[in-house]
């Protein structure tokens, strides 16, 4: 029963949504409005999952005094402090909450990903090898696109940005369309499997 009732809900709602997509009847609109108002009321609670999972992981590290547990304490402190600052002083421009975003979260978030620039450069030097004809084609296409994107490409010859644009609009388009069609069919199949109760991993473990 613990699995069956949720499954029945998904299947019933799913088929009602299929019907709603095709039938613009008053009842179908009413169903949709009901679903939206309930979804809205459920939505804020999803944030609990994130908070709980973070608290549990780091709480366990602290209580077990695992190596580097001090950093976990810092994470939890930052979590509580940031959350509290939003409740106490508000979340608009000029509040401590916004200050934390602009001077702590934003610079670190953007720097984390910028590290990848170094890694890709190192990989370009150490790993991108023209080992086969296919790999050579890949590298040549990449080099043309790279040059085509920057002003230097245009300065060398107008053919560089034009070739780059042709690569993107013709062979690349065909490749991505072939892959997208496969993915699109796959997604439709997965959705159908959920709808028919064949795919159930979203229910999680247990009985």
């Amino acid at each position: 029963m613990k699995r069956q009732i949720p499954l029945i809900i998904v299947i019933t709602l799913g088929f009602m949504f299929v019907a709603h997509t095709f039938i613009p009847h008053k009842a179908s609109v009413a169903f949709y409005d009901w679903w939206v108002s309930w979804s809205k009321a459920i939505s804020p609670f999803a944030v609990i999952l994130g908070i709980m999972s973070l608290t549990m992981v780091h709480g366990t590290k602290i209580s077990r005094k695992a190596p580097n547990w001090q950093y976990s304490a810092l994470t939890l402190f930052a979590l509580v402090f940031t959350g509290a600052s939003g409740f106490i002083w508000g979340t608009s421009e000029g509040t401590p909450f916004m200050w934390l975003f602009k001077n702590v979260q934003m610079p670190m978030g953007s720097t984390m990903f910028s590290l990848l620039a170094f890694h890709i450069a190192s990989a370009a030097y150490k790993a991108f090898r023209a080992r086969s004809a296919e790999a050579t084609v890949l590298l040549i296409a990449a080099i043309i696109v790279m040059l085509g994107q920057v002003p230097l490409g245009m300065a060398i010859s107008k053919w560089i940005p034009e070739t780059s644009s042709w690569i993107l609009n013709v062979p690349n388009l065909a490749a991505k369309r072939g892959i997208a069609l496969g993915v699109g069919l796959g997604m439709t199949a997965t959705s159908l499997k959920i709808l028919l109760g064949i795919e159930r991993t979203y229910l999680g473990g247990g009985d």
Partner: peptide
């Protein structure tokens, strides 16, 4: 980009 191309 020129640097990456030279690296490659």
């Amino acid at each position: 980009h020129v640097m990456i191309i030279v690296f490659i």
